[in-house]
Amino acid sequence: MANRLFKHLKLAIWLAKIEIKSRYNRTALGSFWSSILLFVMVITIGPLYSIIFNQGIEYIANLAIGLFAWQFIINNVLDSSIAFQKIENLYQNKNIGIFVPSFKTLVLNIILSLHQLLPMAIIFFFWSSEFYLKLLLLLPLLFFLSLVMYPINLFISLISLRFKDVQSGLVSINFLVFFLSPIIWSKDLIPVEKKFFIQLNPITHIMTISRDLILNYKLSFNSFEIIILLTVIFNIFLYFFIKKIKNKFIFWF
């Protein structure tokens, strides 16, 4: 069992590496392209929106952390929706299992997020303080987000394999969720009596955890508990879901 798990992990890491190679094949900057988008968004949107939202210079670091976490989440979601389809041909000689494609997606996005440490360092250096510590704290944040995202990746990869609509649906709602979640705006801008509605959005809690951890060096227990509880419930659901479909998914290709 452990041996099989190790083989699957090794395979997933290799597949992630070769996907990065194919994605950025013949580009001069390679996988650093993923970090340029974040940097450009922060230095262009940041100063403008800090004026629109009437916030100080600290808004830029807030925005950077929000975008860092959001890109990790949405890239995992969108890549998962085509995870099985991308390596469909590998299942022709051997059943490489149900977990490899989603784990590959996670590893791929961890690698791409690690490339974003460079723009994050520049942003923290110019628009924040204690940039070493903040940069270091991005690693536990990435670890936490990975734990939250893996079961979601697994579920999305499987239902997208079964139902073609899922991928198109996810692409369509991506922007909606982006604007409805406190990524470029702060939840503190919402009046207290209306805050209840944004608390229903799990992304709000993830953003709260991310910003509190990196900028205030504290763990927001309320949001943390909610995300952990949701993750545990989702994992229980996923356990029964996988038990039900583990012999069926191979027919879905």
Binding site: S22, L90, K94
Partner: peptide
């Protein structure tokens, strides 16, 4: 099992 000998080859 070699059911498709070309499966898994990557051009790049």
């Amino acid at each position: 099992a070699i059911l498709n000998i070309a499966a898994g080859l990557e051009d790049y």
